[in-house]
Nucleic acid binder design. Structure first.
Lengths: 222, 222
DNA sequence: CGATCGTGACGAACAATGTTCGCTCATGGC
DNA sequence: GCCATGAGCGAACATTGTTCGTCACGATCG
């Protein structure tokens, strides 16, 4: 439809297709129009080509999303200042931020052992920081597992909030009404603590500190 | 195709459609054939009806999956024995188990504030246990947030491992080869700790203990 | 006992998706 | 100047979620 067959020759020398170009285009669409707009046809359109052409450089949609995730993780920043705990917090915050910035990418990371070059770089850096903190090898690896899981989960949660239909205030108000209508005999704690439940506060920062303190205080008895 | 128009009257009095029947059928399919088999047509087929009929009782596929999740959470068991920490561990283990038993359901929970009747029951029980442990209201609510996030993430991870194509041993061996081939100068920690990284051990149990110890040792400075 | 009527059920259709199959044609080496 | 190579691409296919108009069943009313 609306073909208007412009000869490829006539086009202003467009950048040739490449895996990187596809990944970049995918991220652009994901950021601009959200996860449900990330279709193969839409990515191809962004590159002024057809969907079939993408499959030369990308195995399938999952492969593309995994590559996009690793590309995003390549933008995680490393700091050289502060104690190891401060640097770890900065690293985790940056990774969480990067994952939540692009809707849906965090879900790709959940439940697949990381193998991407940039994901592994993040893991390596985290391991180094934990070793600097004096942890033994076993504890350090288990801790990295746990923290990485926390990053992906936090990213997924954040990402969902960022893009959930209506602006989040309206949604929270709705949940609040729902909680308020609960029978107090069946949900005694929730009804009595409702106000605290939906209140603000820097839970993200507290949660990471919980992990760090817990890791330092929980021996691995294998 | 293969219509064989059996009059509905001739059929042995089939159970009438209902929201619960649809949810049960969905869980049966999810358990038997996995997430990608959970299509509206397939659920309808399980109930010997057409896909369109489901929409009387279910808003859309997301609504169905949310209902399935809550139904699954209804099977979480509560123990009355042991210290509050032991009971909390049992509760979390049961919830994680229930989420990971049904592929993909944990992802539904990620990034949506829980509102299902059974999900709230789990939260209420967790709050009670944490209060029993002596936590103040703010810490308890933040802790429940964190633990619930941990449950969903752990469930999603477990669920992915349970159903990831090939049997997981082959997959782990493949990842191991991948790690072994990494350049040691770029990934010094990973290459030197490769053995620990993919080794076993009860990381799940340790992770939860980390959360508990961390929660008990991390003050909320609001 | 028979006509009526509402409502749950359903077949068919629609728009959109991921993916594959061959054909086309520009390009680079002889 | 020609030809083979391979990237690019249109069209097609199988499926998906969802909606629409129709239909038959069973209860209700006369």
């Amino acid at each position: 439809m609306s073909a208007e067959p412009v000869s490829r020759r006539a086009r202003p020398a467009k950048a040739p297709l490449s895996r990187d170009a596809i990944i970049e285009a995918g991220l652009r669409i994901l950021d601009r129009d959200g996860l449900e707009a990330l279709t193969m046809r839409r990515v191809a359109q962004e590159l002024d080509t057809g969907a079939a052409s993408l499959y030369v450089y990308v195995k399938d949609r999952d492969d593309l999303m995994a590559a996009m995730l690793d590309e995003a993780l390549g933008r995680v920043g490393f700091t050289a200042e502060g104690t190891w705990q401060e640097r770890l917090r900065a690293l985790v915050d940056s990774a969480t931020e990067e994952m939540s910035r692009h809707e849906g990418l965090a879900l790709v990371a959940l439940g697949s052992i990381p193998t991407g070059a940039n994901a592994l770089l993040v893991l390596d850096r985290m391991l180094a920081l934990l070793k600097e903190g004096g942890l033994d090898d076993t504890t350090a690896t288990w801790a990295v597992d746990l923290i990485y899981l926390h990053i992906t989960a936090g990213g997924a949660e954040q990402s969902a909030y960022n893009t959930k239909g209506m602006e989040q205030n309206a949604h929270i108000a709705e949940v609040d009404r729902h909680y308020a209508a609960l029978p107090a005999d069946r949900y005694p704690m929730i009804t009595s603590m409702r106000e605290e439940l939906l209140s603000g506060g820097d839970r993200e920062r507290w949660g990471l500190q919980v992990l760090i303190n817990g890791i330092l205080n929980t021996p691995v008895h294998q």
